[in-house]
Computed example of a mutant assay.
Amino acid sequence: MTTHRQALLLMVIAPALWSIAGVLTRQLDAARGFEVTFWRSLFSALFVAAAMCWQQGWRQSVATLRGVGGAGVVSGLMWCTMFVAFMIALTMTTVANTLIVMSVSPLLTALLAWIVLKQAIPGRTWLAIVAAFVGICWMFVNSLGGVDGNHLAGMLIACAVPVAAAVNLIAIKRAGHGVDLIPAVFLGSVFSACLMLPFAWPLQASLHDIGILAILGFFQLGFPCMLMVRAARSLTAPEVSLLALLEVLLGPLWAWLGAGEVPAPETLVGGGVVVAALVLNEVAAMRSARLARGALQPRS
């Protein structure tokens, strides 16, 4: 059983690895769009399958895969949606635009947790939801005047990522500890690779590209997604989603330092509003938890 502290560490490592996607994608020579998604998903499936067989043996891995049930299939479909939409969005717009759109995921997760899991949402979270909505609207409205249609299309495609991420987290939490949903990462990778192959054919990636895409599949996708599933067993769905925002903070930084991709002003302003709303909400939550613990301690 993963402790809360260990789960927090896993949820720092996972988004830190996710955040390298943009800068590595910008180093590709020939692979683009659908082909990038195909290779990354294929290598992710190979990594997760190898990890499962190493941990459990291939017979037990097959049994575990068969036992994921409906929750595993739903989770796999959501992983597939995230894998496809994220990479296609990166090929159409900037890393910053893609990640800032994704930053609304914690708020969607909180809403679904309230509706599906019946978790109460405090007033501060509702305020954060409103603030984040304003930030996203600012980013989109101001982008209309200074960004071409290709960038806007990429940002709209990126919207599928936070929706799928929220649904995925709720599916994982509803499944509980009795179902191992790491195989769902494998299913999502397989679904994504199979879906993209017809659109990616004929394949044009060079050996240089395949090396980069292997790194993306192994260490930017398969491994951190497995870490997230493990961490979700000991954290609430909103906690996982909030910690995942580290990707939003680091991704544009690596793209700026490694690929010279400077974020647009409207992206910085709108994204700053979103991230500030989420951070303030988390700080308020920690303060409330400390006050609650203090109230429960016996007075001498």
Rank of each mutant, 00 (worst) to 15 (best):
L207M: 14
G135W: 04
V190G: 13
P122F: 03
F186E: 09
S61K: 00
F133C: 15
M52N: 03
F219W: 10
S189G: 15
G135I: 02
S44Q: 06
S44A: 15
P122V: 04
S103F: 05
L187G: 10
G251T: 05
T93K: 01
V12E: 01
L24K: 05
W114N: 13
S75D: 07
P252F: 07
L156Q: 09
A160C: 14
P15D: 04
T93F: 04
V36C: 09
T236S: 13
W138S: 12
A14R: 00
M102E: 11
G69H: 08
I215A: 14
A31P: 03
C159M: 15
G149M: 10
L243R: 00
L195R: 00
L127W: 11
A232N: 08
R26K: 12
E261L: 08
S234C: 02
S192W: 02
L235R: 00
R293A: 15
S75Q: 13
V116D: 03
G145D: 14
H4Q: 14
I129W: 07
L8Y: 03
G145H: 14
P198W: 03
G294E: 12
I13L: 15
A259T: 05
C137I: 08
A175C: 06
A31Y: 03
A200Q: 04
A200W: 01
S75R: 01
P202I: 08
A160P: 02
G217W: 00
C53Y: 03
G270D: 09
Q27R: 13
P122I: 04
F83R: 01
